[in-house]
């Protein structure tokens, strides 16, 4: 009979390494196709779908755009967006975030059409989506004025890993105790390079500046090709 011995095996490997590699390959593919991929994150009800509707109204006539919409259940958000741009609902069946495999299925469901912008509306959640690279070029976190300006300090990872912060529902500022400057200051302690926007998507306020930023980001991808 073979004898047994105890051995130490040094591994030193990032548990998410293979997912990171997959996400990096997807990002490269989108870059080569000239598609800017935008991962949109926020808590539930902060206005991701409304922001994307306002964005599509501005840009859809000039650019080829599509959206993947993540939710635990229902295809309601895809139905809201479908009149404006091709939309595929990704239903996670209870999972708290989208992952790269689900995003790839969404891209296939879109039919691999050539795109200038692909938006990925993540599941409403300020925690788990922060840990999952979907191959996006740009990660944007929304913070609505009704949520409170203390959220960056409470959920640092999502603000640390984002490149842009959109403060939404600015029309409600007179009615809620939300300090825009304090929210931006807190967020920039965590991610000093954050680009900050203030938007009321329902009234189309601030949307132009946001869209200009998106176009600049896409040009940056194209210039790196």
């Amino acid at each position: 009979m073979m004898s047994r011995t105890i051995r130490t095996i040094v591994v030193k490997r990032d548990v998410y390494e293979s997912l990171r590699i997959d996400a990096g390959e997807q990002r490269k593919r989108w870059s080569e196709q000239g598609t800017l991929a935008v991962n949109v994150l926020s808590s539930p009800g902060a206005g991701k779908t409304t922001l994307l509707q306002a964005t599509a109204r501005r840009l859809a006539s000039r650019y080829r755009m599509a959206v993947l919409v993540g939710d635990l259940e229902t295809d309601r958000d895809a139905q809201r967006l479908a009149p404006l741009l091709p939309a595929v609902q990704l239903t996670t069946g209870g999972a708290c975030h989208l992952d790269i495999a689900l995003v790839r299925r969404g891209v296939e469901a879109l039919g691999n059409i050539p795109l200038d912008f692909l938006f990925i509306e993540n599941v409403g959640n300020l925690v788990c989506p922060a840990s999952h690279d979907l191959g996006e070029h740009l990660r944007v976190v929304l913070l609505s004025t009704t949520e409170g300006d203390d959220k960056p300090a409470k959920y640092p990872k999502i603000f640390r890993t984002s490149q842009a912060l959109v403060i939404t529902k600015t029309d409600l500022i007179p009615f809620v105790p939300f300090d825009v400057a304090a929210a931006e200051r807190e967020a920039r302690k965590i991610q000093p390079e954050l680009a900050c926007f203030q938007i009321c998507a329902l009234r189309d306020e601030g949307v132009g500046e946001w869209c200009k930023y998106l176009e600049e980001q896409r040009n940056r991808i194209l210039s790196m090709k």
């Binding site: 073979m2 004898s3 105890i6 998410y16 965590i190």
Partner: peptide
Amino acid sequence: FLCPLCGSTSDLIDGDKITLVSVEAKVDA
């Protein structure tokens, strides 16, 4: 993440990963 000495932006060096460091295992001799 602002530098405590000069106030500039910084790059993360460590503390954002999950790493499988090592295992001890019974193996065939």
